[in-house]
């Protein structure tokens, strides 16, 4: 599904944009490489190597974290910014960083490094076994919202891993959509899916097949219909074109927007 094209070729599909042959800013590290897991005395940390340098991506915590660790057995797309924090687990800290496992298998991505005293994780909110009773990043529940007419349309944003359709981490957002649509007695739901492209540090562009835009929208509509909103009118569409990547947070282009209309 994935297409790799040179940055020059991007003009042919970027929606009315100007071709961006510039590589990403110096501070960016956008690359595809094997993930590496390093054990520690507490939780494992996740690393990846690019051009002979080791980068730190994040640690294992739990489902409440923003960082979802990658998969051994698959390369990983890393989109990160080099931070000035001290190295962690031997790696230069990328922060912020967004990662996405590549769908194709790569059996060579199988490195588990043993724990070494010199590598410790400075922050482990969730031990490797049972928790202390709280999730690593537990958010206090939002106060019950009092909704009064006239109701406003609301937008909900979903971001995707590369080439992926719906994922478990989208469940709370879909739950919010269902909740709001039910409470206001929504009339209609519009879903717009986008395909994304990322400018890699080597100057090439990694683009999703544009057909995934409509697939994302259709899939969300189907799930919402069978998940309790079957009576509503739905419109699912693909966004026009694909955003031109500039190497900074290009992952935002892999998305879908759900609009709940009163």
């Amino acid at each position: 599904m994935m297409k790799r094209i040179s940055a020059i070729a991007i003009a042919t599909f970027a929606a009315g944009g100007i071709a961006n042959a510039e590589p990403p800013p110096e501070s960016q590290r956008n690359f595809v490489s094997c993930p590496i897991v390093r054990d520690t005395a507490t939780v494992p940390c996740w690393l990846s190597e690019y051009e002979g340098e080791l980068y730190y991506l994040g640690i294992q915590t739990d489902v409440s974290a923003d960082f979802d660790p990658p998969f051994l057995g698959h390369r990983v797309l890393v989109e990160g910014t080099v931070s000035d924090r001290p190295r962690i687990c031997g790696g230069i800290v990328l922060d912020p960083v967004v990662i996405a496992p590549i769908l194709d298998f790569d059996a060579s991505c199988n490195t588990i490094l043993p724990a070494e005293d010199r590598y410790t994780v400075p922050f482990a909110p969730r031990p490797p076994g049972p928790s202390g009773g709280r999730l690593a990043f537990q958010r206090d529940p939002a106060p019950e919202e009092v909704l009064v007419p006239p109701y406003e349309p609301r937008e909900y944003l979903l971001h995707y891993d590369f080439d992926m359709l719906i994922m478990g981490r989208h469940a709370p957002i879909l739950g919010d959509v269902l909740d709001y649509a039910t409470k206001i007695g929504a009339s209609r739901i519009e879903v717009v899916g986008s395909s994304g492209a990322t400018l890699l540090s080597d100057g090439s562009v990694m683009a999703e097949d544009t057909s995934i835009a409509l697939e994302r929208a259709n899939e969300i509509a189907e799930i919402l219909k069978s998940g309790g909103l079957g009576e509503l009118a739905f419109a699912a569409a693909a966004a026009t074109g694909q955003e031109e990547p500039d190497g900074v947070e290009d992952w935002r282009s892999r998305r879908a927007v759900i609009r709940v209309m009163p």
Partner: peptide, 16 residues
């Protein structure tokens, strides 16, 4: 388990 945001592999226990 491994694909729900925890990573593959995860260092955990039976009770995970």
């Amino acid at each position: 388990i491994n694909n729900i945001g925890l990573g593959n592999p995860i260092k955990r226990t039976c009770s995970t």
